[in-house]
Simulated scan of single mutants.
Amino acid sequence: MAESGAGTYEEILQDLLDRRVLDRDHSVLVQFAGEFDRGVTVRLGLRDVTFVNLEPASVSSRLPSALRADAHRMTAEDGSYDHVIGHAGLHHCSRPHQALYEMYRIARRTVVAVENQDSPLMRVAGRFGLVGSYEHDAVADGGGTTGGVDGTGVPNHVYRWTRREVEKTIASFDPGRTVPVEFRSRWLIGTDRALTPGMRSVLGGGGAPARARLVKGLNLGLNGVARRQGNIFGFTIRKDLSRPQTWIPVEPTVTVAEVPA
C-alpha cells in the first residue's frame, strides 16, 4: 500500500485558507474523492465542493454520491473550478501526467496534490524491500476486482514524484507562463497495514504496540535529519501567481484560464 499523506493534505489546505489563497466559498473539485476527502472538506468548512471518482462506490472510495469521471479525460471546461485537489490518487492512474494535466486545465487558481515522493532514501528503501512498488493491499480490499490501476483489479504501480519532475511537467503543460509550485514533504512510515514484510522484519516481532513505538521514533528521526526527502509529498501549483514568460512580448494566446484581476 502506498503511504498515506492525510495529515499533509489537510495541512496544505488549511494553510491556503490561512493565507487567503483558498476561500471557503471558492469552487473546489475533489478528484479521486472518497469518504476521507468529504470529511476534510467538512472540517475545513468548504461550501462549494464537487466530488469526482472513477469508481465512486468502490471499497477504496466509498462515496457513491461522487460523480463518475475518467481522470484522464475530464469533460469540464478549462478553468471551471477555482481549485482542483486530489489526495493519493494520481498513482492509481495509468497515465498520471495526463491526469495531472486535466487537474491543471480545469483549475483557475490552484492545484493541490499529495502523493509519494521519489528520493534517494526512498530508492534505497525500495532496493531493500522496505517499501513496495505495487499496491496489492488496495486490490485485496476490493475483493480482487477494484482498487488498482484505473479502478481495476490489477495492482497499480506506485508512481513517485520528484520536485524537479513536477516543475518540468507544469512547464510542459503551460510553456508560455512561469507557474510557481509550492512543495511540502515529510516522512510518514505508515500504519501496520502499510508495512511491507521487509519493513516488519527490520522493526522486529515485538507485536503491533512495539512496532508502533519504533515507527513513531523512526518518523521523528527521519523528519529531523532528512525531511525534504520524505516519502509523503505535497505540492500546490499556483496558477493564480503565474506570469507570462519574459521572452513573450504579448499575453500567450494558448493558455489555461486565468484568475481575473
Rank of each mutant, 00 (worst) to 15 (best):
A2N: 10
A6I: 01
G7D: 09
T8M: 15
E10C: 05
E11L: 12
R19F: 04
V21E: 08
R24C: 04
F32T: 03
E35W: 06
G39H: 08
V40F: 08
T41C: 15
L44R: 12
V49C: 07
V49M: 08
F51V: 08
N53M: 07
L54N: 08
S58Y: 00
S60E: 11
R62M: 15
L63G: 07
S65F: 12
A66R: 13
A69Q: 14
T75I: 04
A76Y: 15
S80V: 00
D82E: 13
D82F: 02
I85E: 04
A88W: 01
G89R: 04
L90R: 05
H92R: 07
C93D: 09
P96D: 11
H97I: 00
Q98A: 09
A99P: 13
E102T: 10
M103E: 02
M103W: 09
R105V: 11
T110H: 05
A113N: 15
N116A: 11
G126R: 15
V131Q: 01
E135A: 14
H136A: 08
A138P: 00
G143A: 07
G147C: 05
G148M: 08
G148F: 02
G148H: 03
G153A: 09
H157K: 12
V158F: 04
R160N: 03
R163H: 11
K168V: 03
E182T: 13
R184W: 01
W187Q: 06
L188S: 11
G190W: 00
T191W: 02
R193L: 12
T196A: 01
T196H: 01
G198C: 01
G198Y: 02
L203P: 05
G204A: 06
P209N: 09
R211C: 08
R213P: 05
N223E: 00
N223C: 08
G224D: 12
V225F: 10
G230H: 01
N231R: 07
G234K: 09
F235K: 03
I237S: 00
D240R: 02
L241E: 14
E251S: 13
T253K: 10
P260A: 13
